[in-house]
Simulated assay, not measured.
Amino acid sequence: MYTPQQFNSMVLELNASDDRGIGIVRGQILSFASTRTIFKAGPKLIILDEADAMTNDAQNALRRIIEKYTENVRFCIICNYLGKIIPALQSRCTRFRFAPLNKGQIVPRLTDIAAAEGVKISEDGVTALLTLSGGDMRKVLNTLQSTWLAYRDVTEDNVYTCVGHPLRSDINAILNWLLNENDFATCFKNIQDVKLAKGLALSDILTETHTILHRMKLPPQVLTSLLIKMADSEARLASGCSDRVELAALIAAFSLARDQISLDKDV
């Protein structure tokens, strides 16, 4: 067992997103790796979090340090995007991939924290937190804290409103207009009014609509054509195209889909 003093002298932890330049590698990391300790019980440990934020020059310098001090130093390199770590550094490491947490892992911890902090959270609020987090426990807790500070009540609507995410009721209303409203001008006005009133981005509407469409029983050829048109709209939005133009294109795509379904039924 190490004492706290021994542990501190043998472990160096850095957040590479803050300290990501070659100067840190050649200075603090090299100094720690090259300095001997009076404790001979085991190797030193260097932990680099968010290492994918390091520059290529810094990563190349780190590679040489790993080679030189491999006998008495172990490196733990943590990253979100493996593709941003240079191949020469990857080849010197054993890779471990950690999947997003599942509901059974998140909910017990979330319940304990809410009880300890006296936070009132509803069942649909928990579901909303899980949906938005994508298995990221840190995002769950940050969203929980933000929602509680803003509303003092963690419900589904409050969670979505706090992070600026479209409400499920708004998406259902928009999808209902797209699927059932025959008048183009009325459909455009209704969706545009909701967008302006709720501060919704068309890209978010496309994402949520895409998720719901996959659960609907549409003819395969109609669904495929619709998804391709939605993907094209999202690409044009990302390149700077007007929201109003792409909203009109979205309505037209759904109108064509309805016509295709009607033709298939007649045949």
Rank of each mutant, 00 (worst) to 15 (best):
R258F: 01
I121S: 06
L101M: 15
I191L: 01
L202A: 11
L30E: 10
E234R: 04
I29S: 05
S146L: 13
G134S: 06
T161G: 13
A253N: 02
A41W: 15
A99C: 08
L237E: 06
A150N: 07
P219Y: 12
S242G: 04
N60A: 12
H214P: 00
A88W: 03
M216W: 03
M137D: 02
K217H: 12
I86G: 00
N142K: 01
H165L: 03
N176E: 02
G27K: 03
N80Y: 04
R74S: 11
L226K: 05
K68S: 10
S225V: 12
A235I: 15
V119E: 08
C241E: 13
S242P: 01
T186K: 13
R63Q: 09
R63S: 05
A53K: 06
Q260W: 08
N180L: 07
V119P: 02
E156D: 03
A115S: 09
T131L: 10
I86K: 04
P87Y: 14
K195T: 10
S262N: 13
E117Y: 11
D153K: 10
C241K: 03
E246M: 14
S31R: 14
L89K: 08
E208V: 01
S203W: 02
N190E: 08
V11H: 05
L141M: 12
L226H: 09
I228A: 04
P219G: 03
L149F: 14
N15D: 15
K68G: 01
I47G: 11
L110Y: 03
G118D: 13
D57F: 02
C76I: 05
E117M: 07
M54E: 06
R92W: 04
L196P: 00
R95N: 15
G42K: 14
F32W: 07
K265H: 13
I65G: 00
L167S: 04
R20S: 15
E67Q: 06
I106E: 10
A150Y: 05
A173V: 06
M216R: 05
K84C: 04
A116Q: 12
T94W: 14
S34G: 11
R236M: 06
G21E: 14
R92C: 09
S255F: 13
D49W: 06
R168I: 09
D264A: 15
R95W: 04
V119Y: 10
P108W: 11
I38N: 12
L256G: 09
K265N: 10
S34Q: 15
I212H: 10
R244G: 05
K103A: 14
I38D: 10
F98I: 14
K265T: 05
A173G: 04
I191R: 04
S255W: 08
K44M: 05
K68I: 09
I205N: 02
N72R: 12
V126H: 15
E234L: 09
W148P: 02
L213M: 09
R74A: 00
A235E: 10
R109V: 15
S146C: 09
M216S: 01
T207G: 02
T35V: 12
N56C: 00
L178F: 02
R236Q: 11
R244V: 07
V159M: 00
V140Q: 00
S239V: 00
I228L: 11
N182Y: 00
P219H: 12
T70V: 10
S239I: 00
N190P: 11
Q192N: 14
D52K: 02
T3M: 04
